[in-house]
Design a protein around this nucleic acid. Structure first.
Length: 231
DNA sequence: CCATTAAAGGATT
DNA sequence: AATCCTTTAATGG
């Protein structure tokens, strides 16, 4: 039996408002696991045997279009739940989850979902709040995809990545994991060539620094203007 | 304005 | 050496 410390969970949004004993109780059913960068944590359509908490690393949630094209639905950062099909009354995962960096997770059997939320109503409340926020984010993205031009979509994607994963460096805000132009194109509904051209032009203007699979925001304020200003 | 195609060079394993 | 990532240019919707 592994001894997991309740302080692992304390302070994470899914468990806010829960006391030490409640966290201890939750950890009894948890199994720690690791996935190297590039590994699938679960696949679309697969039986949703477990749900997960990401402790460290980044996960990208990917849908496969009928023609084989990939779309990145969102990124999961540490402290977030994923694979919570049971909370949505589903028996299978609705998308693929792939480690975007080396990941450390906890997993719980999905069959324990109902008893967990029965014993810990605060956990249920937190989960529904999170599901609601993801729904709102998705709505915003639908509107953006339908109405905004490519440059603005890419600017928003980069700004969001910087906001959720950014690390301050002497040059600016560095996106904390390796991300290719292809990845950004799959987030924004465009091609890697267009992303490459845009990033090159922003770099020429001094707004960002970019290299192979790395992006640093030098002038995030200017990018924010580009992403939000009308005209 | 943006996607597609093609070609070429650099980086990574 | 093979593969992956990026850039650049030309073309066309």
């Amino acid at each position: 039996m592994s001894r997991l410390d309740p302080s692992l969970l304390a302070g994470l949004p899914p468990f806010s408002g829960m006391d030490h004993d409640a966290l201890k109780d939750l950890l009894v059913g948890a199994t720690p696991l690791r996935h190297p960068k590039g590994a699938h944590i679960f696949r679309e359509g697969e039986d949703a045997h477990s749900f997960f908490l990401l402790l460290d690393g980044y996960v990208r949630v990917v849908k496969l279009a009928p023609d084989g094209e990939q779309v990145i639905v969102r990124f999961i950062t540490s402290g977030e739940l994923l694979g919570i099909a049971k909370a949505l009354s589903r028996d299978s995962y609705p998308a693929n989850a792939v480690a975007a960096a080396d990941c450390v997770l906890l997993s719980w059997p999905s069959r324990s979902w109902d008893s967990i939320i029965a014993v810990h109503p605060g956990f249920a409340t937190n989960t529904y709040a999170m599901v609601g926020q993801r729904l709102i984010d998705t709505h915003d993205k639908v509107v953006e995809l339908a109405t905004e031009r490519v440059e603005r979509r890419v600017a928003n994607a980069v700004l969001n990545l910087a906001k959720t994963t950014g690390k301050a460096t002497d040059e600016g805000i560095l996106i904390d994991f390796l991300i290719s132009r292809q990845d950004i194109s799959e987030m924004t509904g465009t091609t890697l060539h267009t992303v490459s051209r845009l990033l090159s032009s922003w770099e020429a203007k001094g707004w960002i620094k970019s290299g192979r699979q790395r992006i640093t925001l030098v002038e995030s304020q200017t990018l924010k203007l580009l992403a939000t200003a009308r005209g």
